[in-house]
C-alpha cells in the first residue's frame, strides 16, 4: 500500500517536473523560429556588407563579406553616404522628443483631470466624454489627419491662423507657413547640437492633442481614489487650494503617474507613425528618430547590413532606456510601500 502510494507520488512528481516545459513548448518553438532566430541572424548580418544582391542566397552568397565592425563604425562616425546624418544628433533629438512630450502631457493631463474633478462643475460628463476622444482614435489616423492639417497651402492650421490674424490683427492676407519644409529653427539654440525646426513644433502640437487625454484618464482614476476627508482636514487647517494641490494631490498621484509617464516616454521614443507620416524625418533629417532612420535604411536605401547594425544599436539604446525607467518605477514602488 505504502509502496503504491510512494510510486504514484514519484510519478506525479516527475510529471510535474516536465509539465511546465510542455506548457512552454509551443510558444518557445514558434518564437525560436520567428523571433529568436531572426534576432541572432540580425546580429550576424550586422557584421556583413549585406545588400540587395544577396537577397536570394542570403548568407550563402559567394560575394558576401564579413567586414567586422565597419557598419557600426560608419554609423557612429557619420561615415555613411547619407546626407545630413549624424547618429548622435539623431539620438539627442530622439531623447529630447520623448522627454519634451512627456513633460507636457503629464502636467496637462493632471491639471485637466483636477479641473474636471472640481465638485459642482457643470457639464462634467460631457467634458469627460469629449476629452476621451483622442485616446479612442487610432494614432495612425491621428497622424495622417494632422499631416493634412499642417499642409502648407490647404491645411486647416494655416487657415485657422489666417482667420485669427484677420479677426484680431485686421490682416486678411492668407498665411502660408511651410511647417515641414522650413529648415530655419524658430528658436535658435533651444536644444544645443540638434536644432529644432518648425516640423518639430508641428508634431509636438499633434502629439499633444493625442497624448494628454491618456494621462488625464489615468489621473482621473487616481484622483477618485484619494479620500475626500484629506482635503476637508487640510482646508480646516487653513490650507489654500494651491497648497492642497501640492500637498495632497501631487504626492498621491505620483504612484499612478510615474508608470504612465514611463509608458508615455517609451511610446513617444519609438513613435514611428507620427514622424514618418508628418515630417518623414525632415527637413534635412532634423526630426529623424532612430526608428524612422532604421526604416529608411531598410526600405529606401536597402543597406541591410547597415540596417541590421543600426537595429542592434537601437536595441542597446532601448535596453539603457528600459534600465533607467525601470529604476524610476522601482523607486516609486518603494516610495509607495514606505
Amino acid at each position: 500500500m505504502a509502496a503504491i502510494a510512494k510510486s504514484s507520488f514519484r510519478k506525479t512528481k516527475t510529471k510535474n517536473a516536465v509539465l511546465p516545459y510542455l506548457y512552454l513548448l509551443p510558444a518557445f518553438l514558434i518564437m525560436g523560429v520567428i523571433t529568436f532566430y531572426p534576432l541572432i541572424y540580425q546580429v550576424i548580418i550586422s557584421f556583413t556588407n549585406f545588400e540587395t544582391t544577396h537577397l536570394l542566397l542570403g548568407l550563402k552568397s559567394p560575394d558576401l563579406r564579413f567586414i567586422g565592425l565597419q557598419n557600426y563604425i560608419d554609423i557612429f562616425t557619420a561615415a555613411l553616404p547619407v546626407e545630413n546624418f549624424n547618429f548622435f544628433r539623431v539620438l539627442e533629438f530622439n531623447f529630447w522628443w520623448a522627454l519634451s512630450n512627456v513633460i507636457l502631457h503629464v502636467p496637462a493631463g493632471v491639471l485637466i483631470a483636477t479641473l474636471l474633478n472640481a465638485e459642482g462643475l457643470w457639464f462634467k460628463r460631457i467634458y469627460r466624454a469629449v476629452y476621451i476622444l483622442p485616446v479612442v482614435v487610432p494614432p495612425l489616423v491621428v497622424a495622417t489627419v494632422w499631416t493634412n492639417i499642417f499642409d502648407e497651402r490647404y491645411g486647416a492650421m494655416n487657415q485657422l491662423l489666417t482667420n485669427i490674424s484677420a479677426a484680431f490683427l485686421g490682416n486678411a492676407d492668407p498665411i502660408y507657413i511651410r511647417w515641414f519644409e522650413d529648415v530655419k529653427p524658430p528658436i535658435p539654440g533651444f536644444l544645443p547640437g540638434a536644432p529644432l525646426t518648425l516640423a518639430y513644433y508641428a508634431m509636438m502640437v499633434a502629439n499633444f492633442w493625442l497624448g494628454w487625454p491618456f494621462m488625464s484618464v489615468v489621473a482621473t482614476g487616481a484622483l477618485q481614489s484619494i479620500p475626500k476627508d484629506l482635503y476637508e482636514a487640510a482646508s480646516i487647517d487653513g490650507a489654500t487650494p494651491v497648497q492642497q494641490f501640492w500637498g495632497i494631490t501631487v504626492p498621491l498621484l505620483r504612484p499612478a503617474m510615474i508608470p504612465a509617464a514611463v509608458y508615455g516616454f517609451t511610446l513617444s521614443f519609438n513613435l514611428f507613425n507620427f514622424v514618418f507620416f508628418m515630417s518623414g524625418g525632415g527637413p534635412a533629417r532634423s526630426t529623424e528618430l532612430l526608428v524612422t532612420f532604421a526604416y529608411n535604411l531598410v526600405r529606401n536605401l536597402r543597406w541591410y547590413g547597415v540596417a541590421a547594425a543600426f537595429a542592434v544599436i537601437i536595441f542597446g539604446v532601448a535596453l539603457i532606456v528600459f534600465l533607467i525607467t525601470n529604476r524610476i518605477t522601482r523607486a516609486t514602488q518603494n516610495y509607495m510601500e514606505a
Binding site: P38, L56, A311, F315
Partner: peptide, 29 residues
Amino acid sequence: REVLMILVFIPLLMPAVGLSTPLYLLLNQ
C-alpha cells in the same frame, strides 16, 4: 524559469522596425 522569462522579455525591448530587417531577409528566402 528566470532565464526563459528574460528571453521572452528581450524581444519586447526591440521596436517593430528593429526586427524588420532580418524578418524581411529570412521570409524573402
